[in-house]
Amino acid sequence: MKNVKGVIFDLNGTLLDSMYIWHKASDRYLVSRGVTPDFNINGAAAAMSLDQVADYYQQQYKLMGNINHIIDGITDMIDDMYAKVVLKAGVPSVLKKFKQAGVNMCVATTATNNYVAERALKNNNVLQYFSDILTCSELGFGKDNAMLFNHALKKLGTCKESTLVFEDDLTAIQTAKAASFKVVGVYDNYAQNHQSEIQSLSDYYIKSFDDWSEMYG
């Protein structure tokens, strides 16, 4: 992969083994508000920003209070759980090799704010590999919109032809591909029902980051 100059990494479910946190936090928050979550609630919210999730919850479940109140409630539940989140297997080695090859890297994530994302990466000793952390919540749109990927590309200073997007979510992959990005589909257990579609859409597909190291050194 000598032609790779930049990489845009998703965070939850891609770099971090953290999707269980979002599933539990969403369910716990809705239950705390006296609501029984729909079975597919987490799948529906997977590619949304926190603002979009809060708006969705408010509309779907007729929650009282403004959007910021809902966001604060979800974030409070997530913060405590994030202290123990770990990287997926093989991630440190891949990041180190990209860095040694002079590849620019950034994180583009839907669900977390910048502080939570930065803390998780710092706790796992990989924050230094990334030039920027971009969140949908701070930019104002989810991964159903290519603006996040385009903004990340601009931050990296690379062209699409030499930039990879590592993603585990089907909607995000569909968006990136529609915007002509090269995508590395990453397996995550919480997206197992979408794996056939993810594999067919992605330019590359890995079950773990160890696979990437074996294929491309």
Score class of each variant (00 low, 15 high):
residue 2 K to F: 02
residue 5 K to R: 13
residue 6 G to I: 05
residue 7 V to I: 14
residue 8 I to M: 10
residue 9 F to A: 09
residue 9 F to P: 09
residue 9 F to L: 10
residue 12 N to L: 02
residue 23 H to K: 12
residue 24 K to I: 02
residue 25 A to W: 05
residue 26 S to W: 00
residue 26 S to N: 13
residue 27 D to W: 02
residue 29 Y to E: 04
residue 31 V to L: 14
residue 31 V to M: 12
residue 32 S to F: 05
residue 34 G to I: 04
residue 35 V to R: 02
residue 38 D to I: 05
residue 42 N to T: 08
residue 42 N to H: 12
residue 46 A to M: 14
residue 46 A to R: 08
residue 51 D to G: 14
residue 51 D to M: 07
residue 53 V to R: 02
residue 53 V to I: 15
residue 54 A to W: 03
residue 54 A to R: 01
residue 57 Y to T: 03
residue 58 Q to I: 12
residue 58 Q to S: 13
residue 61 Y to Q: 06
residue 63 L to Y: 04
residue 67 I to M: 07
residue 68 N to K: 14
residue 73 G to I: 07
residue 74 I to C: 05
residue 76 D to I: 06
residue 77 M to T: 01
residue 79 D to W: 11
residue 79 D to H: 11
residue 80 D to E: 15
residue 81 M to T: 00
residue 83 A to P: 00
residue 85 V to T: 12
residue 87 L to D: 04
residue 87 L to N: 03
residue 89 A to G: 00
residue 91 V to R: 02
residue 92 P to H: 04
residue 93 S to N: 13
residue 95 L to R: 03
residue 96 K to T: 08
residue 98 F to C: 05
residue 101 A to C: 06
residue 104 N to T: 08
residue 108 A to Q: 02
residue 109 T to W: 07
residue 110 T to R: 00
residue 112 T to G: 14
residue 113 N to S: 05
residue 114 N to W: 03
residue 116 V to D: 09
residue 118 E to F: 07
residue 121 L to S: 04
residue 131 S to P: 00
residue 132 D to H: 15
residue 132 D to T: 04
residue 133 I to Y: 12
residue 142 G to R: 03
residue 143 K to N: 10
residue 144 D to C: 02
residue 144 D to M: 05
residue 145 N to T: 06
residue 147 M to H: 04
residue 152 A to T: 03
residue 152 A to S: 15
residue 153 L to W: 02
residue 157 G to C: 11
residue 159 C to Y: 01
residue 159 C to D: 15
residue 162 S to M: 08
residue 166 F to P: 10
residue 167 E to H: 06
residue 168 D to N: 15
residue 168 D to V: 08
residue 169 D to Q: 13
residue 171 T to A: 14
residue 173 I to S: 10
residue 173 I to R: 06
residue 174 Q to A: 09
residue 175 T to F: 07
residue 175 T to K: 09
residue 178 A to W: 10
residue 180 S to R: 07
residue 186 V to P: 03
residue 187 Y to P: 10
residue 194 H to E: 15
residue 197 E to I: 01
residue 197 E to V: 01
residue 200 S to C: 10
residue 203 D to H: 13
residue 203 D to P: 03
residue 204 Y to S: 09
residue 205 Y to Q: 09
residue 207 K to G: 08
residue 207 K to F: 12
residue 209 F to T: 01
residue 210 D to R: 07
residue 210 D to H: 12
residue 211 D to P: 10
residue 211 D to F: 08
residue 213 S to T: 12
residue 215 M to S: 11
residue 216 Y to H: 15
residue 217 G to L: 12
